[in-house]
Lab assay of single mutants.
Amino acid sequence: QLWTVEEQKKLEQLLIKYPPEEVESRRWQKIADELGNRTAKQVASRVQKYFIKLTKAGIPVPGR
């Protein structure tokens, strides 16, 4: 299922709330739990694509 604008905005906020961890899967699980309707795997996939998009555009990656 496609990500809504609201989900993307919340994801961006949660990336700041939950900074990078030694075991990133824990971070994705915390974010997924707060989103409520996404799995950690879906979050990880979305974040990877989002970070690539930001990097290509020369925009700083949130939480890094």
Rank of each mutant, 00 (worst) to 15 (best):
K49W: 10
K41H: 12
Q29Y: 04
E21L: 03
I52Q: 15
G36A: 09
L54K: 15
R46I: 11
L14A: 07
R38M: 08
L54A: 15
Q42W: 04
A44H: 12
K56T: 09
K53S: 13
T55R: 13
A40E: 08
T55Q: 14
I52W: 10
N37F: 07
P19L: 08
K49A: 10
A44Q: 13
K41N: 11
K49I: 03
N37S: 12
L14G: 01
V43W: 01
I31R: 01
Q13I: 07
R27T: 03
P19Y: 03
V47W: 03
L15P: 01
V61R: 11
K9C: 01
E24R: 03
L54C: 14
R26V: 13
P60D: 13
I16F: 07
Y18N: 03
D33P: 01
K30Y: 03
P62C: 11
E22F: 05
L14F: 03
K17P: 00
E34P: 00
A44P: 01
A57M: 12
V47M: 06
G58N: 08
R64L: 14
V23I: 08
L35Q: 02
A57S: 12
A57W: 05
R64Q: 15
I16E: 15
V47R: 00
S25C: 12
F51G: 15
G58C: 05
R64H: 11
I16N: 11
N37T: 13
I59P: 14
I59N: 14
R38E: 02
E24M: 11
Q8K: 06
E12T: 06
R26C: 11
V43N: 01
E34R: 04
Q48K: 13
E22D: 14
L15H: 00
P60C: 07
Q42V: 04
Q8G: 06
K49M: 05
R38H: 10
K30R: 10
V47C: 12
G58Y: 03
L15K: 01
K10G: 03
A40N: 04
R64N: 13
K17F: 02
Y50D: 08
R26S: 14
K30M: 05
N37L: 05
V47D: 02
G58Q: 14
S25F: 13
T39W: 02
A57H: 10
S25E: 15
I16G: 10
L54P: 15
R27W: 02
P60M: 06
A40Q: 06
V23W: 05
E21Y: 02
K9Y: 08
A44T: 03
R26F: 11
R46Y: 14
I52V: 15
E22R: 08
K30D: 02
S25G: 13
Q8H: 13
K41F: 06
Q29K: 06
Q13H: 06
L35R: 01
Y18D: 01
K10E: 07
A44E: 14
I31G: 02
P19W: 04
R64G: 14
W28M: 12
G36Y: 05
Y50H: 14
V61H: 07
A40S: 09
Q42D: 15
Q8N: 12
F51M: 14
T39F: 01
V61S: 13
W28H: 05
E34C: 07
Q8D: 14
E21I: 05
R38F: 07
A40G: 09
R38S: 04
K49P: 07
Q29A: 09
S25A: 13
Q29S: 08
N37C: 07
G63L: 03
Q29C: 08
E22N: 08
L35N: 00
V43M: 02
R27H: 03
E22V: 10
S25D: 12
A57F: 11
V47I: 05
E22I: 09
P62S: 13
Q8M: 15
Q42R: 01
R26H: 15
Q48M: 11
G58E: 12
Y50K: 11
Q42H: 05
K10Q: 09
K56C: 04
A57Y: 05
Y18L: 02
P62V: 10
N37H: 11
F51K: 13
N37Y: 05
G36L: 05
P62F: 05
Y18V: 04
K17C: 04
P62D: 15
E22L: 09
V23D: 13
T39M: 01
K49G: 11
A32L: 01
F51D: 15
K56S: 11
S45T: 06
F51E: 15
K53M: 06
E12R: 05
E21M: 07
K53D: 12
E12W: 02
E21A: 03
K41E: 15
R26Y: 09
G36W: 05
I52G: 15
D33A: 08
I31E: 01
L11F: 04
R38D: 00
G63C: 15
P20H: 13
A32I: 01
A32M: 01
R26W: 09
L15A: 02
Q48S: 10
L11V: 03
R38P: 02
K9E: 12
V43Y: 00
V61T: 14
K9I: 07
K17D: 08
K56F: 01
R46N: 09
E34A: 09
A40W: 13
K56D: 14
P19Q: 13
Y18E: 01
P20T: 12
P19M: 07
V23Y: 08
V61I: 14
P20S: 15
P20R: 08
L14E: 01
R26D: 14
R38Y: 10
W28K: 02
I59C: 15
I16T: 11
A57I: 10
I59G: 15
Q48G: 09
Q42A: 10
R46C: 11
A44V: 05
R64Y: 09
E22K: 11
R46D: 06
Q48Y: 09
R46Q: 12
A44K: 12
Q8A: 09
K9P: 00
V61N: 12
I31Y: 01
E12A: 06
Q42N: 05
T39D: 15
K49C: 06
T4A: 03
Q29E: 14
A57P: 15
G36I: 07
I52L: 13
T39C: 04
I52S: 15
V5D: 05
E24F: 04
I16L: 10
A57E: 13
T55F: 03
E24N: 07
V43K: 00
K17N: 03
E21D: 11
P60G: 12
S25W: 10
R64V: 12
E34S: 07
Q29H: 05
A44C: 11
L15Q: 00
S25Q: 12
V43F: 01
R46K: 10
A32S: 08
K30C: 04
Q29N: 09
E34K: 09
N37V: 06
V47F: 04
V47A: 14
L11R: 00
K53R: 11
R27V: 01
L11A: 01
R26L: 15
I31C: 03
P60S: 11
K10V: 05
V47Y: 09
Y18W: 03
L14C: 03
G58T: 06
E34V: 06
P19H: 04
K30S: 05
K49Q: 11
R26N: 13
K49N: 13
E24G: 04
K53Q: 13
K41T: 13
Y18T: 02
L14Q: 02
E21Q: 06
Y50T: 15
R27I: 00
A44G: 07
K41Q: 12
L35A: 00
Q42T: 03
K53F: 05
V61G: 10
K53L: 04
Y50W: 10
T55E: 15
W28R: 00
P20V: 10
V43P: 01
P19I: 03
E34Q: 06
E22W: 04
T55P: 15
E12G: 07
G58V: 07
Q8T: 09
K56N: 05
T55K: 12
R38T: 07
E12H: 06
P20L: 05
K9V: 07
Q29W: 05
P60F: 05
P62Y: 10
Y18M: 04
R27K: 01
K53P: 14
L15G: 01
L15D: 01
L15Y: 01
P20K: 11
K53I: 03
R27C: 02
E34I: 04
Q48R: 11
L14Y: 03
